[in-house]
Simulated assay, not measured.
Amino acid sequence: MNGFSTSPITQAIRESCNQWRNYADVYDSWNSVKSIAEWTALHQDIVVPSAGPGGWNDPDMLVIGNFGLSHDQQESQMALWALMAAPLIMSNDLRSMCPRSKALLQNRRIIDINQDPLGKQGYRTATLGSFEVWERPLSNNFMAIAVRNMQEIGGPQKLPIMKVPGWRMCDFLCNVTQILPQFKELGIQRQQTNLAVAVNPSGVALLTIHPILD
């Protein structure tokens, strides 16, 4: 996190609190979720260093299982909140939640990313055309990567994994797993891989990568 530094204000908050709100209230609206993610990215040099075991930035609740987000947008919120190490607080009516939303909220692999014991908050590392990339260092030399398609019309768009900044951690070989939109073991990839991820409009591809020895 070159260039990131804890501000005196966030340090003072951390000394007294275990979690703290950063921005405006979330609403059951994709514009609301996007605005929170964008605010976090624009202020990540201040908020990211303050997060860690014992204290967490809180971008407000998940609106998954309500009515304002498409399923792709719900996956985007879940992935981004997991990478931001955000408290995963639900705001929906459990009695009327659809099965897909329930499965997303209970996805153990995403929850494991969110609660990774290393405790480092992820951050936006690149904007590449219609894509933005968020990355989070995980324990045991893993990394989580969220590739979000910022377009909201049209069909899926593809991004070569080699364009993702975090891919540079793979000196030779990496094991790649896709968590969203569907779980897939993408296998061992060489540094000069042709692998590309396809992402629906306003959706996300959530991956983990792990460098390995040949």
Rank of each mutant, 00 (worst) to 15 (best):
S130H: 14
V133H: 01
R190E: 08
P211N: 12
Y123A: 08
I188F: 12
Q151H: 08
K102L: 06
A126N: 10
M169W: 15
R109Y: 09
I36P: 00
Q151M: 12
A198S: 03
R109K: 13
V26E: 07
G68F: 04
S32G: 10
T127P: 01
R148E: 01
R148A: 00
L180P: 00
N66T: 04
R136S: 11
P87R: 08
E15K: 11
T125N: 15
V48M: 08
A126M: 05
G65Q: 01
G155L: 04
R108K: 04
W167E: 06
S35H: 10
G129S: 12
S70T: 05
Q157T: 11
M162Q: 06
T193R: 11
S202A: 15
E38P: 00
M150A: 09
M143W: 15
P160Y: 00
T6K: 08
D72M: 02
G55N: 13
L105R: 11
F183K: 08
V48C: 04
S76D: 04
N149F: 00
E15S: 07
M97V: 12
S35N: 08
G65T: 02
L83H: 03
A196T: 09
A103M: 12
L69E: 01
Y23H: 05
I9T: 09
R148L: 03
A146C: 13
L206C: 06
G65I: 01
I46F: 12
C17P: 07
D214E: 15
V147A: 13
P137W: 11
A198W: 01
P165K: 11
S32L: 02
N92H: 14
M150L: 15
N200S: 09
S35R: 07
A12T: 11
W134I: 03
L105V: 09
Q182E: 11
G166Q: 01
G119T: 14
A146F: 04
L207I: 05
C174L: 08
P59N: 04
V204Q: 02
E132K: 04
C98F: 14
G187K: 03
M1W: 07
F131Y: 01
M90S: 10
V204M: 14
N149R: 01
I153F: 05
V199C: 02
N149W: 01
G122C: 15
A82Q: 02
Q73G: 06
H210R: 04
W56S: 13
I161V: 14
S16N: 05
D116K: 15
N92W: 08
I161T: 00
E132W: 01
C170V: 07
E152Y: 15
V176W: 00
N92E: 10
L118K: 09
R109C: 03
L180M: 11
S202M: 09
C174W: 03
E75F: 12
G52K: 13
L186I: 04
G155H: 02
V63N: 13
S130W: 06
E15A: 14
V47W: 09
L195V: 04
N107W: 07
L173T: 14
A37N: 11
D93Q: 07
